[in-house]
Design a protein around this nucleic acid. Structure first.
Lengths: 346, 346
DNA sequence: GAATTTTTGATGTACGTAAATCAGAAATTT
DNA sequence: AAATTTCTGATTTACGTACATCAAAAATTC
């Protein structure tokens, strides 16, 4: 049986009220007495029963997810995952809400964060935009005692409590390594399609990709990066032009979100290219199964949402987080280890 | 504010006691009344507050993990993970214990299960051995109302409530696909090292591997399976002999646990072979980083333990499980996406 | 040493549910 | 219609913690 506050009171030879004062940092306890109580806590190995405490406080945890607007399939999947999780998490005294803001709009993100703080949420998860306004908003959250985690795109150097997402440099390296090995000694250059180089994730992925490709035994030309702005039509045009202009093209790495345009261009082409992309969706899954795509790198939206909730709740309670458990892994999917289709793949 | 039992009583026009009888399936409620209460539950969207319920029941969940003895690194990692998790999970009213039994000993496993049932545990997680005794023991657990999940090695067709582990056929296929693609058009046969073909996992991995290899564009000879009994010395001898006898060997797939012997033989050889193995440990991590091993397929022990706990608790409470969340993924590691070393890698 | 302040104890209520008891009402049987 | 059985209500205690109040004790100040 785990010790309770009563056991501590008995062990320390004080009253329950005093134990309560020590446990909850209430004033009116002499240093000597406080030390006695703390010794009893330590010797009995007391751990507060969070469930009972929350019940007594009738505490709920309103958490806000701030996500970019637009038709980025990954973000929409993330949103769907939050909503789905929200249905089941009332049980755990958590109330989730989603706010969307224009993509890459630092001012809007900062405003949304301030609104959440004003509403008195107990935690914020946001896809960070790299701008001073956002740093400042995070600092304000910190002052207000509201924990903040960055989602998918980090903001290291800011006051954020935790980052939930993959290591994008490693993701790029992984793509480069697979591309190099899959191509072997087959000649021909490789094209890279990105959304925009102004986004930190994309920059990091490219960096890793180039590093891994240049470490391969046989050197291979990498064409200048195509920036498709994650727009299907523009991506289609860029890739179609590239396929026409570079007949000996050996592979394509899409490190951004615009897979739809890429796949459309490949369909018109008839492909024996090595194609590696990010994010497992219904479309990329189909292309993987049919052999158009060779590998998909993925971060699991469900895991990210659940991890964000666990971390924010732990931070709100002042508890520590299990770093190993909260690490988001980079999944490599080839057609042989595809998981059964989930509900969030369109 | 979420509705409580009091709200339901008011809504249904019955007393609190009656609501309690309906909620907990206690006898003494007429069909009409029961229907009224259930209607109220549905219309108010009542969900039982599990935390409060557990508090009231002062319920704890004693769970048993039954694992094979021996120096199988993966099993020992699993055990360490259970112990580590056990330290933190007292908070969640779960009490974990580990029982080890001789590997592949069906009678011992069945006896351990019966002992756990007799002790009144509220859930059993076991690495299943494929034998009638075990089927019978699972049935006895079922009759006693004790949920059972199989861990790592499944026993489909039995009464087990859930399987926690990877799809081993898909794992074999993945290994085969990677092997084929990494080798490209390089000639030479491939060797397969297993522990024992009498273990179901190993059989399934081989099956998947052979299927994927034969689906590759260029055919390639697969040497007869070497059975190293997961023993370092025997594995070393088998691989050393093979390397000597087959000078043009192109690759090795170890689908079992005996990586130590394999690595020792490779170290003495100086390798440009394509090597794919299972289970990320300190040794395989090092070999991956140094380039001796090309890919490691892994199932995360921490995830499996946490998943087993969640599933057993849900089953014990008669709740449903989130299948997508509980699916154990097959991780593909190459040197570029290695996670930081965890505590369970020796 | 008296007056004051600070510290401590005792006690009660609340959170949402479980579980038990006993009395009374309703339904069923005789 | 009476006796019996089956349901239902009212009430209480408990789980472990939070939080408030008031009185009593101890320490401090004057």
């Amino acid at each position: 049986m785990r010790p309770t506050v009563h056991d501590i009171a008995a062990e320390a030879g004080v009253s329950l009220a005093t134990v309560d004062r020590v446990l909850n940092d209430r004033p009116g306890v002499r240093g000597v007495t406080k030390a006695k109580v703390e010794a009893a806590i330590a010797s009995l190995g007391y751990v507060r029963d969070v469930a009972a405490a929350n019940l007594a406080k009738s505490r709920v945890y309103p958490l806000v997810f701030i996500l970019p607007e637009g038709d980025n399939p990954f973000m929409r999947g993330l949103e769907a995952e939050v909503r789905r999780t929200g249905l089941h998490s009332a049980i755990e005294r958590t109330r989730l809400s989603v706010v969307t803001v224009p993509a890459f709009d630092a001012a809007a993100l900062a405003a949304a964060m301030d609104a959440a703080i004003a509403e008195g949420v107990s935690g914020i998860a946001a896809v960070a935009v790299d701008a001073p306004e956002v740093f400042a908003a995070i600092d304000r959250a910190r002052e207000a005692g509201v924990p903040v985690v960055t989602l998918v795109s980090d903001l290291s150097g800011s006051g954020r409590d935790h980052f939930i997402g993959v290591d994008n440099i490693a993701a790029g390296r992984t793509a480069g390594s697979l591309m190099g090995r899959f191509l072997g000694n087959r000649p021909g250059p490789v094209a890279v399609l990105a959304g925009s180089m102004r986004v930190r994730d994309h920059g990091e992925r490219l960096e890793g990709f180039l590093a891994a490709m240049s470490a391969m035994p046989n050197t291979r030309a990498i064409l200048p990066v195509l920036e498709g702005q994650d727009d299907p039509d523009l991506s289609f045009k860029l890739i179609a032009n590239c396929l026409a202009a570079v007949p000996d093209l050996a592979g394509i790495y899409n490190l951004g979100a615009g897979n739809r345009g890429l796949l459309k261009a490949l369909a018109a082409h008839g492909t024996d290219l090595c194609v590696i992309v990010h994010e497992l969706t219904g479309e990329t899954r189909g292309a993987l199964e049919s052999g158009v795509i060779d590998a998909v790198l993925n971060q699991d939206a469900g895991h990210e949402v659940r991890s964000a909730i666990r971390v924010l709740r732990a931070k709100a309670d002042g508890l520590s987080v299990n770093a190993a458990q909260e690490r988001i892994r980079l999944d490599i999917f080839i057609k042989d280890n595809l998981p059964p289709a989930g509900p969030d793949e369109e």
